[in-house]
Every structure is written in structure tokens, then in C-alpha cells.
Amino acid sequence: MEPPIPVPDVPGADATARGLPRRAELTLWQRLIVDSSAVADIALRTSIASLLAATMLPGMLPAVVPGLRGNRSRDEREQLRFYAELAATQDPTASFPAPRTPPRVSSRPANPIAERIAGGHVYNIRFASSFEAVNPALRDRCRSYERNNVVHAQHWRHPDGPRPTLCLIHGFMGSPYLLNGLFFSLPWFYRCGYDVLLYTLPFHGARAEKGSPFSGYGFFANGFAGFAEAMAQAVHDFRSIIDYLEHTGVDRIALTGMSLGGYTSALIASVDDRIQAVIPNVPVVAPDRTVDEWFPANQLVRLRNLLSRTDADLVAAATRFSSPLNYAPLVPKERRLIITGLGDRLAPPEQAELLWEHWDRCAFHWFPGNHVLHVSQPDYLRRMTRFLRGFMFD
């Protein structure tokens, strides 16, 4: 089968025992693609970083107003200490408590376009999130997000179901179901026999609060504590999705995600042992290191930390709260596969290598493209298909 969106089929390869290939080991054609795609990614990264900087500005105003600066700085330091202390335990059950009750799911048929793309039965599902903020000081604020506290997903189901299910988590701002279905060639997997579920992250798509200037705005608009709680809710709500799938009879679930979705999928694989396989795609795993390269957002972060007199070590310790590098994976090594692009400058391949080292040097595949131009996608789709077949289908 060929993917629905044609892309150049320039082959990548699996990493060796030494890791990703050195530049000299690439062919001339591969080096050309890596270099040109990296330049394009830097331009895209600057655009997204500018958008994030604009998102962060309103939250910085109290830090520059003399009468509010002291209280705001003290609150931020207390929040950072809360997440740093929780991260230090390296206990996923404490950081990410499981949902206490199964969700009450509402399901309705999706539009005809979705069914035509999938080539089968498609349903939009929704249910009320049972998430409570991990930090008690933020629970009232998190409860006030009306739209965000309704979970949304799209479920592609075979009429003779249930089938082994491939779940996908989108990247930052990339929530539309149609876009993800085509970009990730999900009709390919559906025709291969999988049911498919597309999960909407907090503050994205239909979960964006009224007045949000773009999908995903709320993920970074409320400072570090807001990001930490958004990640906690992303994990919590997906675990409710697993409860729903199990209730419908699904007994095998594989999870993949791109960028922020790759970060989330890697974290979920360290929290819930019901995942049979996990495939983070161009994942970020250490956001504090990544933001350092994202101009102009990195300058605003430094200014905010300077004004609030925030210690860099405290920020790094708190960031580990939601990092998959802080927790042991629950998915067996032979069922972990990491995919990265050598020309990626939004989620640099060094981030994927950090996860590869933490995950005991599991299966690791690279392609000669960037964050959004997945050159050799047909190659890694075939790699994913071979990787999953042995334990998703008997």
C-alpha cells in the first residue's frame, strides 16, 4: 500500500548500536535533503517561537508591575518547588494518578468526508474529564476550563470489531482529525486491519477555550504550572480513553504521536502498563533544553526567570515532572520504537537519542527529513507495520 499523500521515498534506516549516523556516513543525496530540510525547519521554528512568545507576554505582566512582582515571584517559586519535589520521587503513580471511574462516553457518526478518508465507520466520541489538578492550589483554575474539560476523540472502527487499535496523539497546534489522518497515513493502518483512534490533547481543537487565538493556546499560556497540569491532564484523559477501549472489548492498544504527541506518548508508556507498543515520532523529551534554542521565546523565558529571581536548577528539576526521562518505561523493550528526522530543528534528533538511551537502546529509526516533511515516510510506515504485526495480530 502507498500512503495517501505522496512524499519522496528516500530511504532512512535503523540506528546502529552507536546511535544515529554521522554526517559522513550519509549519501550525498541524504545530506542534501537533511541540510535543506533543516534550514526550512529553522524558519518554521522561529515562527512558532514568535507565536509562543506572544502567548507568554500576558502572563509576564505581573512580573514587571512593581506592586505585583513579589507575590507573583513567590507563587511561581512555590509551584516550581511542588513539581520538583514530586518529580524527585520518580513515582508515576504519585505524579499521574489513574482515573477513579470509567468515562460515560457519548458517540455519534462523523461526517461523510471522514468516513470516505478512512474507508470505514468513523465516530466522534466525547466525555467529561475526571481530571483534578495535581497541585491543589490550581484545582479551582483547572475546573474553570469548561471546554477543555470535555475530552474529544475520533474512532475508526471496523464493522466486525473490536480490532487491535492504533492510537495517535497529534502535535502542538496540529489537532484536526482530517489533517492527522492523511499526514500519518492512517487509512493505510485501517486497511491493514487496525481500528484507529485519534485523541485530542488538552486546549486543542474542540477543547480550546472560548477566545483562544489558536488551537493549543492554553497549553503554554499559563506559565510552567499550567504546562505541567496540561501534561498531567493529557495523560489522565488518555487513560480514560484506554478504559473506554477496554470496555468496548479492545485488548491490544498501540500508541504513537508526533512532537508534543510523541512527548505525551512516551510519558504515557511510563505511566500505564496497558499499552502493548509505543512509537514516539519526532519526540521532544527535555523541553527546557529545546526552548533554549527557540528564539524569541527563549529570550522571554530568560527575562521572566530573571525578573522573578527563579533559580535555573529549580526550573530544570521541576521540568522533570512531565519528562519521560524521569520514569522507567512500562512497555517492554522489544515493543518500543523511536522515529526521528535528521533535519528536524523543532524536535532535534538529539532529543530522540536521549530517549533511546533512557529506553535501553530500543529500536530506533531515522529518516532524512525535518519536523513536518517526513521524507521516506513510506519507508518508516513499512517499518512500523513490521514492528507492530508480531504482537498486535496473532
Rank of each mutant, 00 (worst) to 15 (best):
210 K>Q: 04
186 L>H: 04
156 W>Q: 05
190 Y>F: 12
203 F>M: 11
134 V>A: 08
165 T>V: 11
148 N>V: 01
204 H>A: 07
218 G>Y: 00
149 N>E: 06
130 S>D: 11
145 Y>K: 12
187 P>G: 07
151 V>A: 06
184 F>C: 08
150 V>G: 00
144 S>W: 05
150 V>Q: 14
160 D>N: 15
167 C>Q: 00
171 G>H: 00
175 S>C: 13
186 L>P: 02
145 Y>S: 09
164 P>K: 00
210 K>C: 02
169 I>C: 15
178 L>M: 08
163 R>M: 12
142 C>F: 14
215 S>M: 13
204 H>I: 01
208 A>V: 04
172 F>W: 14
200 T>P: 07
195 D>A: 04
139 R>G: 06
206 A>I: 03
186 L>R: 07
139 R>W: 02
190 Y>H: 11
193 G>I: 10
165 T>W: 01
166 L>G: 00
173 M>D: 14
193 G>W: 11
208 A>S: 15
182 L>G: 00
176 P>W: 03
144 S>K: 00
163 R>L: 04
211 G>R: 02
164 P>Y: 04
194 Y>H: 12
152 H>F: 11
135 N>G: 08
131 F>Y: 15
187 P>W: 03
199 Y>H: 09
133 A>C: 02
189 F>K: 03
194 Y>M: 12
165 T>L: 10
169 I>E: 11
200 T>L: 06
190 Y>E: 00
214 F>M: 14
156 W>F: 08
174 G>M: 02
162 P>T: 05
210 K>T: 15
199 Y>I: 01
197 L>D: 03
193 G>S: 09
176 P>D: 13
207 R>F: 06
158 H>W: 05
134 V>N: 01
156 W>D: 01
173 M>A: 14
201 L>I: 10
193 G>E: 07
136 P>W: 07
153 A>F: 08
183 F>V: 09
163 R>A: 13
216 G>H: 11
204 H>V: 01
169 I>A: 10
155 H>Y: 13
189 F>N: 03
207 R>S: 08
152 H>Y: 12
149 N>K: 07
204 H>G: 09
196 V>F: 05
184 F>S: 03
159 P>W: 04
201 L>Y: 06
202 P>V: 00
165 T>Q: 04
213 P>L: 12
192 C>H: 14
186 L>C: 12
